[in-house]
Amino acid sequence: MRKIFPAEELARDSRFIRQTNEQRMGDPRGARIAGGNTSGNLAKLTPDLPNGPDRARALMHGIFVGEIQALEGAGRTCWDFELGDEVPLALKLDMARQCWDEARHCEISVSLAEHMGTELGEYAENALLYEAACNPDPVLRLTGVNRALEGLAIDVFNTMKEFGNMAGDPVLEFCEDWMLADEVTHVKMGSDWLRRLTENDKDRLDKALEFQKVVDRLFSFNGFRGEDDDSPIQLTRRFRELAGFSDEEIDEIADMSRDARFEATA
Protein backbone atom coordinates (compact mmCIF):
# COMPACT_ATOMS: atom_id res chain seq x y z
CA MET A 1 0.00 0.00 0.00
CA ARG A 2 1.43 3.36 -0.99
CA LYS A 3 2.47 6.05 1.44
CA ILE A 4 1.07 9.64 1.44
CA PHE A 5 -2.30 9.11 -0.25
CA PRO A 6 -3.36 12.15 -2.37
CA ALA A 7 -6.50 14.07 -1.39
CA GLU A 8 -7.86 13.87 -4.94
CA GLU A 9 -8.19 10.09 -4.63
CA LEU A 10 -10.07 9.88 -1.33
CA ALA A 11 -12.98 7.49 -1.66
CA ARG A 12 -16.36 9.19 -1.75
CA ASP A 13 -19.69 8.04 -3.16
CA SER A 14 -21.77 10.06 -5.62
CA ARG A 15 -23.47 12.08 -2.88
CA PHE A 16 -20.30 14.05 -2.20
CA ILE A 17 -19.15 16.95 -4.41
CA ARG A 18 -15.63 18.27 -3.89
CA GLN A 19 -14.87 21.99 -3.94
CA THR A 20 -11.19 22.82 -4.39
CA ASN A 21 -9.40 25.43 -2.31
CA GLU A 22 -9.02 27.52 -5.46
CA GLN A 23 -12.76 27.43 -6.05
CA ARG A 24 -13.53 28.24 -2.41
CA MET A 25 -11.04 31.08 -2.08
CA GLY A 26 -11.82 32.31 -5.60
CA ASP A 27 -15.50 32.92 -4.92
CA PRO A 28 -15.80 36.69 -5.56
CA ARG A 29 -18.63 36.86 -3.02
CA GLY A 30 -16.25 35.78 -0.24
CA ALA A 31 -15.12 32.31 0.79
CA ARG A 32 -17.70 30.13 2.50
CA ILE A 33 -16.57 28.71 5.79
CA ALA A 34 -18.23 27.30 8.88
CA GLY A 35 -21.74 27.75 7.66
CA GLY A 36 -21.38 31.38 6.76
CA ASN A 37 -19.77 33.76 4.38
CA THR A 38 -16.72 35.90 4.96
CA SER A 39 -17.70 38.86 2.82
CA GLY A 40 -20.78 40.17 4.57
CA ASN A 41 -21.31 41.56 8.01
CA LEU A 42 -20.15 39.11 10.63
CA ALA A 43 -22.46 37.90 13.33
CA LYS A 44 -22.03 35.32 16.07
CA LEU A 45 -23.83 32.12 15.20
CA THR A 46 -26.96 32.04 17.36
CA PRO A 47 -30.51 30.71 16.89
CA ASP A 48 -31.80 34.30 16.98
CA LEU A 49 -30.34 35.06 13.56
CA PRO A 50 -32.96 34.71 10.80
CA ASN A 51 -30.66 32.22 9.05
CA GLY A 52 -29.26 30.76 12.30
CA PRO A 53 -30.72 27.25 11.95
CA ASP A 54 -29.60 26.97 8.31
CA ARG A 55 -26.11 28.22 9.17
CA ALA A 56 -25.93 25.65 11.95
CA ARG A 57 -26.95 22.94 9.47
CA ALA A 58 -24.24 23.98 7.02
CA LEU A 59 -21.64 24.16 9.78
CA MET A 60 -22.65 20.72 11.05
CA HIS A 61 -22.17 19.32 7.56
CA GLY A 62 -18.71 20.91 7.47
CA ILE A 63 -17.96 19.21 10.79
CA PHE A 64 -19.17 15.90 9.39
CA VAL A 65 -16.85 15.94 6.35
CA GLY A 66 -14.07 17.21 8.63
CA GLU A 67 -14.55 14.14 10.82
CA ILE A 68 -14.27 11.85 7.81
CA GLN A 69 -11.04 13.55 6.77
CA ALA A 70 -9.68 13.54 10.33
CA LEU A 71 -10.29 9.79 10.44
CA GLU A 72 -8.53 9.37 7.10
CA GLY A 73 -5.63 11.58 8.20
CA ALA A 74 -5.06 9.86 11.55
CA GLY A 75 -5.27 6.49 9.78
CA ARG A 76 -2.66 7.59 7.26
CA THR A 77 -0.36 8.73 10.06
CA CYS A 78 -0.55 5.22 11.53
CA TRP A 79 0.62 3.85 8.18
CA ASP A 80 2.76 6.47 6.43
CA PHE A 81 5.71 6.51 8.86
CA GLU A 82 8.21 3.82 9.81
CA LEU A 83 8.20 2.70 13.41
CA GLY A 84 11.36 3.65 15.26
CA ASP A 85 13.05 5.58 12.45
CA GLU A 86 10.33 8.18 12.02
CA VAL A 87 7.82 7.86 14.86
CA PRO A 88 7.58 5.95 18.16
CA LEU A 89 4.95 3.25 18.74
CA ALA A 90 3.21 5.43 21.33
CA LEU A 91 2.50 8.06 18.65
CA LYS A 92 0.91 5.44 16.40
CA LEU A 93 -1.16 4.21 19.34
CA ASP A 94 -2.38 7.77 19.93
CA MET A 95 -3.32 8.04 16.25
CA ALA A 96 -5.12 4.68 16.42
CA ARG A 97 -7.09 5.95 19.40
CA GLN A 98 -7.86 9.12 17.45
CA CYS A 99 -9.15 7.00 14.55
CA TRP A 100 -11.60 5.37 16.96
CA ASP A 101 -12.70 8.80 18.22
CA GLU A 102 -13.11 10.21 14.71
CA ALA A 103 -15.10 7.18 13.58
CA ARG A 104 -17.44 7.72 16.51
CA HIS A 105 -17.67 11.42 15.64
CA CYS A 106 -18.63 10.47 12.08
CA GLU A 107 -21.48 8.35 13.44
CA ILE A 108 -22.59 11.15 15.78
CA SER A 109 -22.39 13.70 12.94
CA VAL A 110 -24.53 11.53 10.67
CA SER A 111 -27.14 11.31 13.43
CA LEU A 112 -26.98 15.06 14.00
CA ALA A 113 -27.39 15.71 10.27
CA GLU A 114 -30.55 13.62 10.38
CA HIS A 115 -31.69 15.49 13.49
CA MET A 116 -31.12 18.86 11.79
CA GLY A 117 -32.70 17.87 8.49
CA THR A 118 -29.53 17.79 6.41
CA GLU A 119 -28.82 15.33 3.62
CA LEU A 120 -25.32 13.81 3.54
CA GLY A 121 -23.52 15.61 0.73
CA GLU A 122 -26.01 18.50 0.73
CA TYR A 123 -23.10 20.96 0.84
CA ALA A 124 -19.81 20.96 -1.07
CA GLU A 125 -16.84 19.24 0.58
CA ASN A 126 -13.46 20.94 0.87
CA ALA A 127 -10.45 18.71 1.63
CA LEU A 128 -8.18 21.22 3.34
CA LEU A 129 -8.06 19.22 6.57
CA TYR A 130 -6.89 16.08 4.84
CA GLU A 131 -4.41 18.05 2.73
CA ALA A 132 -2.76 19.27 5.94
CA ALA A 133 -2.56 15.60 6.91
CA CYS A 134 -0.42 14.87 3.85
CA ASN A 135 2.67 16.67 5.15
CA PRO A 136 5.61 14.25 4.86
CA ASP A 137 7.06 15.27 8.26
CA PRO A 138 5.04 13.64 11.09
CA VAL A 139 5.76 16.56 13.42
CA LEU A 140 4.47 19.11 10.92
CA ARG A 141 1.51 16.87 10.16
CA LEU A 142 0.50 16.56 13.81
CA THR A 143 1.06 20.25 14.40
CA GLY A 144 -1.00 21.29 11.37
CA VAL A 145 -3.82 18.84 11.99
CA ASN A 146 -3.93 18.26 15.74
CA ARG A 147 -3.00 21.76 16.89
CA ALA A 148 -4.31 24.04 14.13
CA LEU A 149 -7.33 22.20 12.71
CA GLU A 150 -8.38 20.25 15.79
CA GLY A 151 -7.82 23.51 17.66
CA LEU A 152 -10.31 25.11 15.31
CA ALA A 153 -12.60 22.15 16.02
CA ILE A 154 -12.51 23.07 19.72
CA ASP A 155 -13.76 26.57 18.84
CA VAL A 156 -16.39 25.21 16.44
CA PHE A 157 -17.72 22.53 18.79
CA ASN A 158 -17.97 25.00 21.64
CA THR A 159 -19.85 27.44 19.41
CA MET A 160 -22.24 24.68 18.32
CA LYS A 161 -22.67 23.50 21.90
CA GLU A 162 -23.69 27.03 22.89
CA PHE A 163 -26.02 27.19 19.88
CA GLY A 164 -27.74 24.00 21.08
CA ASN A 165 -27.99 25.38 24.59
CA MET A 166 -29.53 28.66 23.42
CA ALA A 167 -31.98 26.86 21.11
CA GLY A 168 -33.05 24.48 23.88
CA ASP A 169 -31.82 21.56 21.79
CA PRO A 170 -30.35 19.01 24.22
CA VAL A 171 -29.41 16.56 21.44
CA LEU A 172 -27.12 19.07 19.73
CA GLU A 173 -25.76 20.46 22.99
CA PHE A 174 -24.75 17.12 24.50
CA CYS A 175 -23.39 15.62 21.28
CA GLU A 176 -21.16 18.67 20.78
CA ASP A 177 -20.04 18.55 24.40
CA TRP A 178 -18.97 14.91 24.10
CA MET A 179 -17.09 15.54 20.85
CA LEU A 180 -15.52 18.67 22.32
CA ALA A 181 -14.00 16.59 25.12
CA ASP A 182 -12.35 14.32 22.53
CA GLU A 183 -11.05 17.28 20.53
CA VAL A 184 -9.32 18.70 23.59
CA THR A 185 -7.57 15.33 23.92
CA HIS A 186 -6.56 15.34 20.25
CA VAL A 187 -5.10 18.84 20.49
CA LYS A 188 -3.27 17.83 23.68
CA MET A 189 -1.79 14.88 21.77
CA GLY A 190 -0.52 17.29 19.13
CA SER A 191 0.95 19.61 21.77
CA ASP A 192 2.63 16.73 23.61
CA TRP A 193 4.12 15.11 20.50
CA LEU A 194 5.32 18.45 19.18
CA ARG A 195 7.22 19.00 22.42
CA ARG A 196 8.61 15.46 22.63
CA LEU A 197 9.70 15.04 19.01
CA THR A 198 11.38 18.44 18.79
CA GLU A 199 12.98 18.40 22.23
CA ASN A 200 16.48 18.66 20.74
CA ASP A 201 15.60 20.10 17.36
CA LYS A 202 14.80 23.81 17.50
CA ASP A 203 14.77 24.15 13.71
CA ARG A 204 12.11 21.44 13.33
CA LEU A 205 10.04 22.99 16.13
CA ASP A 206 10.14 26.36 14.37
CA LYS A 207 9.11 24.79 11.06
CA ALA A 208 6.22 22.96 12.72
CA LEU A 209 4.94 26.10 14.44
CA GLU A 210 5.23 28.02 11.17
CA PHE A 211 3.19 25.32 9.42
CA GLN A 212 0.60 25.58 12.17
CA LYS A 213 0.41 29.34 11.60
CA VAL A 214 -0.10 28.83 7.87
CA VAL A 215 -3.01 26.47 8.54
CA ASP A 216 -4.44 28.75 11.24
CA ARG A 217 -4.23 31.71 8.89
CA LEU A 218 -6.26 29.87 6.26
CA PHE A 219 -9.14 29.77 8.74
CA SER A 220 -8.78 33.32 10.01
CA PHE A 221 -9.80 35.36 7.00
CA ASN A 222 -11.98 38.32 7.76
CA GLY A 223 -11.79 37.51 11.47
CA PHE A 224 -14.25 34.68 11.08
CA ARG A 225 -12.89 32.87 14.13
CA GLY A 226 -11.95 35.26 16.93
CA GLU A 227 -12.69 36.77 20.32
CA ASP A 228 -14.86 39.69 19.26
CA ASP A 229 -18.52 39.49 20.28
CA ASP A 230 -19.64 39.25 16.66
CA SER A 231 -17.09 36.63 15.57
CA PRO A 232 -19.20 33.79 14.11
CA ILE A 233 -16.90 31.20 15.70
CA GLN A 234 -15.68 32.12 19.15
CA LEU A 235 -12.05 31.44 20.11
CA THR A 236 -12.24 29.26 23.19
CA ARG A 237 -9.42 30.12 25.58
CA ARG A 238 -10.17 27.74 28.45
CA PHE A 239 -10.33 24.56 26.36
CA ARG A 240 -7.24 25.58 24.39
CA GLU A 241 -5.35 26.01 27.65
CA LEU A 242 -6.41 22.50 28.66
CA ALA A 243 -5.13 21.26 25.29
CA GLY A 244 -1.63 22.59 25.85
CA PHE A 245 -1.76 26.04 24.26
CA SER A 246 0.13 28.79 26.07
CA ASP A 247 -1.45 32.20 26.65
CA GLU A 248 0.97 33.66 24.11
CA GLU A 249 -0.13 31.15 21.45
CA ILE A 250 -3.81 31.90 22.05
CA ASP A 251 -3.09 35.64 21.93
CA GLU A 252 -1.33 35.12 18.62
CA ILE A 253 -4.35 33.35 17.08
CA ALA A 254 -6.64 36.11 18.36
CA ASP A 255 -4.31 38.76 16.90
CA MET A 256 -4.16 36.90 13.59
CA SER A 257 -7.95 37.00 13.44
CA ARG A 258 -8.08 40.71 14.25
CA ASP A 259 -5.45 41.44 11.60
CA ALA A 260 -7.40 39.45 9.03
CA ARG A 261 -10.52 41.38 9.91
CA PHE A 262 -8.72 44.70 9.67
CA GLU A 263 -7.31 43.77 6.26
CA ALA A 264 -10.76 42.77 5.04
CA THR A 265 -12.38 46.02 6.11
CA ALA A 266 -9.49 48.39 5.24
Binding site: P47, G52, P53, D54, R57, H115, M116, G117, T118, A167, D169
Partner: peptide, 8 residues
Protein backbone atom coordinates in the same frame (compact mmCIF):
# COMPACT_ATOMS: atom_id res chain seq x y z
CA UNK B 1 -35.07 20.96 7.47
CA UNK B 2 -38.35 22.78 8.08
CA UNK B 3 -38.97 20.74 11.24
CA UNK B 4 -35.55 21.77 12.57
CA UNK B 5 -36.23 25.45 11.83
CA UNK B 6 -39.67 25.18 13.41
CA UNK B 7 -38.24 23.55 16.54
CA UNK B 8 -35.65 26.32 16.83
Amino acid sequence: RRLYQFRN
